[in-house]
């Protein structure tokens, strides 16, 4: 295990402890705030799994989040689907994965990379938001769908009812922790190393027998599937879905969370999502129009001053201390 891995696990464990301790000090409302922020943290981690490992930015990731949300909403609101909660979650994951597979297939196997990929995915996000607004007989148009019931899973003797604040907080914390841990395992193992190789030199990786396009496609699909899961979880916590949740603004925000938290770290983006949403609430409470300005400025500062994210301050400080230490 490398030093980097140990640091990651330490940070992960610290985060877990904070999540466990928090309910002893917080009231129900505060728990739901953190819970919803964590769902967006999961969304950020899903983008980071793709962007951080391949170096290719998907600027329409909210399309998958929104699609997952709409699928969940439609299945649970239908009323005749058995095990609606579970079917909704699986359906959301599958729908997002399928959309990513279709878009990704044509892009990756067509040799589209880099900023062209970013532009096409940006357009995809805009199209999805437009579809959500226009197809009002299904999606409820501009006002979206409301009255989505809290997640209730009753399957094989296991009964989970997430109408309670604490129960839903615990459930989401567990899901986020497990998914982030799995993504981390995938990133540091064979899968991640081959992706790093492809990012370094795709032609070389292909000349060694790796099917780079397929590997990128599968990574994109996994990333989108998790974004879809996050979207589905969000709508059954919030109880509503609207076209904004598949739109450009959310895609921009998730990009900022990842960039601020530290691309390629998986944990950083979760922290980034929590911190920035908190800041957004504070700032919006005294002046709502100030927030987009600050968000934009923050993004620019991060990209120029701390391209590896805010968490990289620690490793930078460490490097400075090492330099000033007398040589042994």
């Amino acid at each position: 295990m490398t030093e980097r891995d140990r640091n990651w696990l330490t940070l992960f464990a610290t985060g877990l402890i904070l999540l466990i301790v928090y309910p002893f000090f917080a009231d129900g409302y505060q728990l739901t705030v953190i819970r919803d922020a964590l769902i967006f943290g999961l969304f950020a981690a899903s983008l980071d799994f793709f962007w951080g490992r391949t170096g290719i930015l998907c600027f329409g990731h909210a399309a998958f989040f929104g699609l997952g949300g709409y699928v969940m909403a439609l299945i649970t609101l239908n009323g005749s689907v058995p095990l609606a909660g579970l079917v909704g979650l699986l359906g959301a994951i599958a729908a997002a994965a399928l959309l990513a597979a279709v878009i990704g297939y044509f892009l990756f196997f067509g040799g589209i990379r880099g900023s062209y990929f970013t532009i096409v995915t940006l357009a995809t996000g805009v199209i999805c938001q437009q579809a959500a607004i226009s197809w009002s007989s299904v999606t409820g148009g501009d006002s979206g769908l409301i009255g989505i019931p809290p997640l209730e899973i009753d399957f094989a003797g296991i009964r989970i009812d997430l109408g309670q604040d604490l129960a839903s907080y615990v459930f989401i914390s567990i899901i986020v922790a497990i998914v982030v841990l799995l993504l981390w395992q995938l990133s540091r193992g064979r899968w991640g190393k081959v992706l790093t190789a492809i990012q370094d030199n795709e032609v070389r990786a292909a000349a060694l027998g790796h099917n780079a396009s397929l590997r990128l496609l599968l990574t994109f699909v996994v990333s989108a599937a998790i974004a879809g899961l996050a979207g589905a979880l969000y709508v059954c916590m919030a109880g509503l879905i609207a076209p904004d949740l598949s739109g450009l603004l959310l895609s921009t925000e998730v990009t900022v969370w990842v960039a601020v938290g530290g691309r390629g770290t998986l944990l950083g983006p979760v922290v980034g999502a929590l911190v920035i949403q908190r800041a957004q609430q504070e700032i919006s409470s005294f002046n709502p129009s100030l927030w987009p300005l600050i968000l934009g400025l923050l993004f620019i500062v991060i990209v120029f001053a701390l391209p590896d994210g805010v968490l990289s301050i620690f490793s930078r400080l460490k490097a400075i201390f090492r330099k000033t230490e007398p040589a042994r």
């Binding site: 790093t196 032609v203 990786a205 790796h210």
Partner: peptide, 27 residues
């Protein structure tokens, strides 16, 4: 068919060992 390119093209962000691992996993 294996090929060594004219310009050395290794994977700079991976360690020497990982470079060889990635090569072995290719086929």
């Amino acid at each position: 068919v294996a090929r060594k390119f004219q310009i050395p093209s290794v994977f700079p962000s991976l360690s020497v060992e990982e470079n060889l691992d990635v090569a072995r996993w290719g086929t």
